[in-house]
Amino acid sequence: MASIWEYANPRKFLATTDVVLPWVTALAAITLVAGLIWGFFFTPDDYKQGSTVKIIYLHVPSALMAINAWLMMLVASLIWLVRRHHVSALAARAAAPVGATFTLIALATGAIWGQPMWGTWWAWDPRLTSFLILFLFYLGYMALWQAVENPDTAADLTSVLCIVGSVFAVLSRYAVNFWNQGLHQGASLSLDREEHVADVFYYPLLVSIAGFVLLFIALVLLRTRTEIRARRLYALAARERMGQGAAG
């Protein structure tokens, strides 16, 4: 019985993703395109929001994945700190730019949606503000990875930052709520069928969300592979430098 930790071996990870990645990529492309085309072309206008309701197929999935990407980084950081699997730390690093991009999409679509609905591009609404803060967290996290040269030190420091940052991100969410009551509508998705959006919007939205999830997985797998190779490159370069030092 193979343990899940086997995939934490970089070689095994590369070999496995070599097979899996094309399938995930294809599936992500199909689902994302299907969800967006369904949402854009084949859904009716909302009686209140008109055609702007079509923005939901970008806004909600990207916002969802912006938070989930951070959660994934948090879990990967904890695994790195506890079990010292390099793949885990590198996956966290690989996910950050993807999460930051999703945050940016959520912010941009939110602003564009807010303009006709609320009459302003930007309102310091709690949800928008929280996402802006989340974006700053992503920037800091990526900047720290960039700044520290030794990959193991960088992995450790960013993991600590990710954990502390998560606590402060949650704190900020509540602080911002306290600071300004917002214009933003409640949750679009809910298990309580009475609350969430109507079925005609709901099913294409689910497909879009699946598309964004798969896109995230595909990108993180691809980028983790890159990070594994970059780390190997770093190790080889360090060995060459040491070899030259011994020879000269």
Partner: peptide, 9 residues
């Protein structure tokens, strides 16, 4: 850049 977001609350 690291500290300012932490200062928000």
């Amino acid at each position: 850049i690291l500290v300012l977001p932490l200062y928000v609350p």
